[in-house]
Design a protein around this nucleic acid. Structure first.
Length: 311
RNA sequence: CGCAGGGUAGAGCAGUUGGCAGCUCAUCGGGCCCAUAACCCGAAGGUCGGAGGUUCAAGUCCUUCCCCUGCAA
């Protein structure tokens, strides 16, 4: 019965690819995929298909890449779809598309809704210093991430987690949650519950300027902000004209020994930065043009870094 | 051919006007110490990204190819 359900999968990055993979490995009938257009990527501007497209083509699943799904979804009618499953597709689905499938349209969202509706839920929970987050399998409605909830599964955030490691957890957990919820969604036995409007919070898209770390942040927030941006795209401070990325750091003390933004220690024991409410240790850094390295490796090649000002 | 930095010991870097390839960390051995990631002594470890060229002599100069990274898209 589940094999007869005609599923249209919509998604773009690696996370979505892993969700699609889980569907395929468990025998679901994915009749087509919609993903973003191939884009020139990297320094050489090589036109690269999205991870979802690559996987779909390996399984001989037809791939559609409309420029604007809002204006171009007529082709979906001919697919006779029962269910749309989306995960990080990257475009808002028009109302008339949501009503096409016989069963409905569902989304895999990276937070415990109604918390963190929006574009960057995985980064946001790290920024906030949360210790628990999760995935939500939900019905799609016109308003973004506002649909009723079918199923939720919690994820424990470890203090050592950053965006990259948390993304791995979401790949696993998101797949698990979807597979648990799908049978009940398809046979309509799974009850959905509406979101508590009083608990709704939002998170926006991470913009370029957000990657410049702020020295106005309290040390705890600074560390969490760095976690949210690591390893990609990576938060940075300026070292003169150069970008100096900080990929991992930790709170050391409440001491105030020098101006905010000053390197107050640079030796084997650590690379310490003064913030306005204390000192943090920079553990992994990346100088412009260089690879990511530990503070020890960095200091081996960079003498005289003590008392340097970052901004 | 989008802009820019780079490739030298396991890691991070220095290497001047071409003239015996170095520093710090790590590793191994020894010493000191109640002890140590500390300190002292010693050792091993390199076709200087590849190919070609100039030269008595190339890490260094010329040509060409490959790769890594930051920015931009």
């Amino acid at each position: 019965m589940m094999n007869n359900t005609r599923i249209l999968f919509m998604g773009t990055p690696d996370l979505a690819k892993n969700i699609l993979k889980a569907l395929l490995e468990n025998g679901y009938n994915v009749v087509a995929c919609i993903t973003q257009e191939d884009k020139p990527v990297g320094r050489k501007h090589v036109i690269t298909p999205t991870p979802v497209k690559k996987l779909a083509l390996e399984h001989n699943i037809p791939v559609y890449q409309p420029h604007r799904i809002r204006n171009d979804f007529e082709f979906v009618k001919d697919l006779n779809v029962d269910l749309i499953v989306t995960c990080a597709y990257g475009q808002i689905l028009p109302h008339d598309l949501l009503t096409l499938p016989t069963i409905g349209a569902i989304n895999v969202h990276g937070s415990l809704l109604p918390k963190y509706r929006g574009a960057s839920p995985i980064q946001e929970c790290l920024k906030q210093g949360d210790t628990i987050t999760g995935v939500t399998i939900m019905e799609m409605v016109d308003e973004m991430d506002a649909g009723d909830i079918f199923y939720q599964q919690k994820i424990v955030i470890d203090p050592s987690d950053n965006y990259t490691s948390l993304l791995d957890k979401f790949s696993l957990c998101g797949s698990e949650a979807l597979l648990k919820a799908l049978p009940g969604i398809i046979d309509k036995s799974l009850k959905k519950i509406s979101q508590n409007k009083d608990e709704v919070t939002f998170c926006g898209k991470i913009k370029k300027e957000d990657e410049h770390l702020s020295l106005d942040l309290l040390k705890k927030d600074f560390v969490n902000y760095v976690r949210a941006l690591s390893l990609t795209p990576g938060g940075y401070l300026y070292f003169g004209e150069e970008i100096f990325k900080i990929l991992e750091c930790e709170v050391i003390s409440d001491e105030l020994v020098d101006k905010v933004g000053t390197i107050v220690k640079a030796d084997k024991q650590g690379l310490y930065l003064q913030l306005k409410d204390g000192i943090i240790a920079l553990k992994q850094v990346q100088r412009q043009g260089k690879k990511i390295m530990t503070y020890k490796d960095f200091l081996n090649g960079e003498k005289n870094f003590l008392h340097i000002q970052l901004s």
